[in-house]
Design a protein around this nucleic acid. Structure first.
Lengths: 220, 220, 220, 220
DNA sequence: TATGAATGAGATTTCATTCAT
DNA sequence: TATGAATGAAATCTCATTCAT
């Protein structure tokens, strides 16, 4: 109950001791800087400055600049993908409703958030880091595509959708999201893209293509 | 056929045609090296070596490394896109036939050629070079999407397709090409993609979605 | 036997005696770490970890890393040298017996102990720290060589040894010890040295050279 | 016979193109800087400055700072040792004469030349670079000690020397050279060492010890 | 006393670009 | 036109030292 004790208990660490939030703060700052300058073009000191810490501290949490990249890539997409997968598996309405509702909602958000940077980073740096892309493939792609497949399979089983090439290549459902990411990164300043309308058109297209016409048989 | 020619043809590591082809040879070499290491990771000396010229000579043709990048980006897609645009405008069959035939053919080739590297380079370096992306937008994207739009418009006019979101966003026709490019760059070593089947599934989907069902009216 | 004592004894990684022994414990740890990595290559945090204290605490006892070096150099040789000097001055047998007995014994131990590291440290860091080498010269070298000289002088006075160059350069008596230190530091992994035999051969040599042949006069 | 040709032929490259001498020049400069500051304490830029070249050029010839160290260590002793070995094998006088003449001459020079720095470098950096010490052991130590052994063996065969511990440990012949190196590095500013006298005393000692007393038998 | 998060100066290394020949 | 030695500006990373707690 000394002054000092009081102090601590009442206000928490006053200055900068925030060991536990620091990694996230730094990764957040890194995401922003990488977004602006790309990985190679971003200086570690830029990230440090943005995060409001010293250059040296960066290396306390991330042993190399690469590690920082990994943290960024791992940190910002994986949770979202898992959310989508969970949402799919819990959905008990029609697949079309899911695609037009929660799915469109999610990919719209994704495609307009800073997360699109991840695609940029993967394109630029992925080839040099197989472990990174492997991780991403295992933890993001597999999970996402797997959930999409289950959704489509269910819809076919229930007679809602007819089998189609999309079942074999669920990537097709996400291709416009990637395109939106690329577009925004590269061309947005010349010709902005209405991402939500764009993705709505996409969902319309695939739902329309997969939906079994009334009164028709079950042929692919 | 001079002595010197003979000499050169026998020794140089790679390209040893004539001086007037030098710029193309260098750009070609640059494309390869950029493909392997990305733009930032590629050394000018690597490109020089691959092209079989000295580092100093590179600077006679391209004032900076950036100029080289521009030459690569400008040189390898634009001609193809123009070909497609021309083919579209000359086509007088059904749009569906065009999409399933020449179009699928072209994008399959494109998506499996070294040209996919361009997407990588644009993603990585584009944001830093607005002039580059502007040029690309004006000379490649506009041309390509314009031709796609004309094709679809014609098909609607002729009652082959019904109006749909794809008319507003012809990018949707190309989204899977971009996805294929990204996939190959990043995930191919973990899970190869059957690009031709993938794109066929895509064309099937959009044609199916756009084709006016027999006996139906003209509503979007 | 307080709670706290128990606690500490059970947990700390290494040294866990009492506060007043801290400086020695730290110097001991420093000796070990310097031995493994050299002075420049040793991190203060390595030493701290080895000593079982925090980095910050180190600076309570040693203001700089250099101070730590000084403590190490001062602490591990000086006592021994003083012991030898004392032993010499108290010896009342023949000089040859002293050299073959206690002296050989002492230098053998010295040359195979961790103390050889001191030579390494002096070589690497000495030139940058004149005060350190001065101290060492005054307190170790002078003392040691002085005692050796007295031993030889006595032996000459008593007719046991004849005067020789070794009287002027008592360093010659210790040269092989230095060589052994160097050898072990540098070549031991490639070709181990039998230090005791080596030093025995050395003592044999010098005793043989200095011993006055029976019945000869007193010429140098 | 153009002006330019003339120019080149007459004066050699005027400016700085001296690709072939550069490595030696740089190694020479490195030796000096290492001598003053030790390896760890020497900045690459210091060496560059001393050599009169840019920092970048250093890395054209030596890929890392370590490579530079290797070049220094390899370059400055090996030739001398080979010379000594050759001289020994060609000698056909008495061993004592060799030791008192050419050998003393050589080690005196060695011990007062900049080469003593090598000992310092080996002590400081050797433990971290087994390949370096192995190389040194194989190319310098083995050669030198081998030649010494042959000299002594010959002398014993010819009845000049009696067998002694020095035959087993020819290092003893060189121990004072090492000591001189250490001394000069560490204590010379406090108490200079008369190296030539010191080594003369050493040679006197060993020759005296090894020489067979007149009329004595052949016991070790 | 004791901690260890935080700092920042400084070191090595890379490489686009220049320029003497 | 052609070379490649040479430069120097930056960028990554390390670690002794400080200091709020």
């Amino acid at each position: 109950m000394s002054q000092q004790d009081n102090h601590q208990a009442a206000t928490g660490p006053r200055f900068k001791r925030r060991k536990d939030q620091r990694p996230e703060e730094i990764a957040e700052a890194a995401l922003e800087v990488f977004a602006e300058r790309g990985f190679a073009g971003a200086r570690v000191s830029d990230v440090a400055e943005r995060a409001g810490v010293s250059k040296g501290l960066m290396y306390l949490y991330y042993k190399t600049k690469q590690d920082l990249l990994k943290a960024v890539i791992r940190g910002f997409i994986e949770p979202r993908v898992r959310d989508v997968a969970t949402a799919i598996d819990r959905w008990d309405g029609s697949a079309a409703d899911f695609l037009r509702g929660p799915f469109l909602q999610t990919i719209s958000q994704l495609a307009t958030s800073r997360a699109v940077i991840i695609v940029r980073l993967m394109m630029a740096e992925g080839p040099k880091h197989p472990d990174l892309t492997k991780y991403y493939y295992d933890h993001v792609i597999t999970v996402g595509l797997g959930a999409m497949s289950r959704l489509l399979d269910r819809a076919v089983d229930q007679g809602e959708f007819r089998p189609s090439g999309i079942h074999r290549f669920p990537q097709l459902l996400l291709a416009p999201v990637v395109m939106a990411a690329v577009w925004q990164t590269v061309f947005d300043r010349h010709q902005p893209l209405e991402v939500h309308d764009f993705l709505t058109a996409h969902i319309d297209t695939v739902v329309s293509a997969m939906t079994r016409p009334v009164g028709e048989g079950n042929e692919p």
